[in-house]
Design a protein around this nucleic acid. Structure first.
Lengths: 160, 160
DNA sequence: TTTCTAAATGCAATTCATTTGCATCTGGAA
DNA sequence: TTCCAGATGCAAATGAATTGCATTTAGAAA
């Protein structure tokens, strides 16, 4: 009987494992912790944030930032993780690829990132016009002002 | 009679001027050339690309890359220019804010960027669910495979 | 269990995009 | 023509991400 990884995204952090974990990759302490951080994250995090959070789980252990980068790019290569980049932020952010993706409404004033309910494209047949382009994914960001920042307006136009 | 800038985006490069040019900004040689490059660009360019193209227009003149960055960020601040960032590219790209924006379909194989015909959101009421968020803009990127790369498939999956 | 090796990591140095401080220059109002 | 706030050039600094190499380790095989 082959051993099954019944733990995984459902599992608690202590025995965190990953059923979709690709063959040939070692399930190291560092990778477990990075996976755990991403699993618990409520929004995409950049490498340094992940580095710091992962270090908390690894009391006393040494962590190299470069290792985090390498883990993240391996995970991305294997489809475990999604990369996102935002114009207002120089660093790239990473999130677990949970199948259903999330888009965000970004407030231009306070920079808060508000997750959108569902994907507007879910019911939409993206016709590219570019004949023959096979769409496998998309990335969407909506900009504007959140209700709070909207209130204290009157000044907040482009011209400061 | 106040002087009118009848040249502008419609003008030829030699007398390139900009009607929407904000008050208080000097219309310098460097800025003219950056504006010209952006005006003629068929797709968003990064700072180094703009730097090189602008230098061509300014035969023999000195240009500093840092100046290009400063011009671009000033232009963006004033709403003349839009910034875009792509996950596959570390550098930020800039394009003239022409009112109507363009989205792209990005081929994951050859990285070609195919402009989409019109904006899928044009006819779409973006309901954020996030109550009260006022949408002023959005950014969309579609990923997949262009027809050419699609043909020579069979191997090109994630695992490689 | 122990052995063994390809894969993973730590570390330090490197690359590359972007920013900044400061002295000099210049567009354009007076 | 004068004059100065705003622009620029230059060089150094910052910050994200990558890379080379020696060392460690997960996990398959013995």
């Amino acid at each position: 009987m082959e051993q099954q990884n019944v733990t995984g995204p459902q599992a608690t952090a202590s025995d965190m494992a990953c059923p979709e974990y690709p063959q040939g990759l070692k399930w190291t302490r560092q990778r477990k912790n990075v996976y755990r951080v991403l699993w618990e994250a409520k929004e995409p995090l950049n490498a340094v944030q992940i580095y710091k959070l992962a270090a908390q789980y690894a009391e006393g252990e040494e962590y190299a930032l470069s290792t985090i980068y390498r883990i993240l790019s391996t995970f991305e290569e294997k489809g475990l993780v999604e990369k996102t980049s935002w114009v207002e932020d120089t660093a790239v952010a990473y999130s677990l690829n949970r199948g259903q993706h999330t888009h965000y409404a970004v407030c231009l004033e306070c920079h808060r990132r508000i997750p959108l309910q569902g994907c507007p494209f879910a019911h939409m047949n993206v016709d590219c016009g570019a004949g023959g382009f096979t769409v496998t994914g998309h990335k969407l960001e909506v900009y504007g002002y959140c209700s709070e920042c909207r209130e204290q307006q009157g000044r907040g136009q482009i011209e400061n």
